[in-house]
Design a binder for these strands. Sequence first.
DNA 1: CAGAATCCTGCGCGATACTG
DNA 2: CAGTATCGCGCAGGATTCTG
Lengths: 112, 112
Amino acid sequence: MEDIDYIKENRLEDTGFSYTLNLIGGKYKMQALYAISLNHSPLRYNAMKRLLSPISFKSLTNTLKDLEHSGLIYRKEYPQIPPKVEYGLTDLGKSLIPVLDTICTWGEKQMK
Amino acid sequence: MEDIDYIKENRLEDTGFSYTLNLIGGKYKMQALYAISLNHSPLRYNAMKRLLSPISFKSLTNTLKDLEHSGLIYRKEYPQIPPKVEYGLTDLGKSLIPVLDTICTWGEKQMK
DNA sequence: CAGAATCCTGCGCGATACTG
DNA sequence: CAGTATCGCGCAGGATTCTG
């Protein structure tokens, strides 16, 4: 059995690996999720923009929409003036935190 | 202490999280590393191109160069005709596999 | 304050052709 | 086979303006 044959049985697209990256592989998606996680509570729109700086309004909005449609975060709107919107992790999103933590931990080890 | 203050003490750029993403956050970098890992042995240039399809020559070359400069993979050239070049994981690159595995495992769980 | 709507730009990336 | 070199463009993403 050759290298290539082995890989063929494990087509990259068929693995959970690609599945996950399709959900959080965007430019700011992991950072957005991790920012909420680090904060230990929901974040408001402008707070997220500051944290993900230099992200633009457009990218932030798109990122948040994608994550919401993927069921990883929820959007809670307070009907008041001035408006207030919070973004928090869903249970599914929370289940991703250990994954993001391993990324963080690996980096911390290398930085020393 | 407010939400924001908490985050301020944990600036996203100062965490290992951003450090790691700077190394493997590119469009094909994680996939490239994981492809080598799945194969359990070094991969040749054209084999990688097939696996990362529809990647272009240019992107593949850049991806491999970046990963090599980051010390995550090594490049071994066999001086023969026709040429043969293999890309494998360095020890540092191997240390990332558990991280990539958690990404894969999470995805597999969701796919069911 | 939290976006939506426009316009605009760079450059990431692909396609193709060529070489040792 | 494993790349480089060149060209060109699509579209992700930025900047700005406007609104409930």
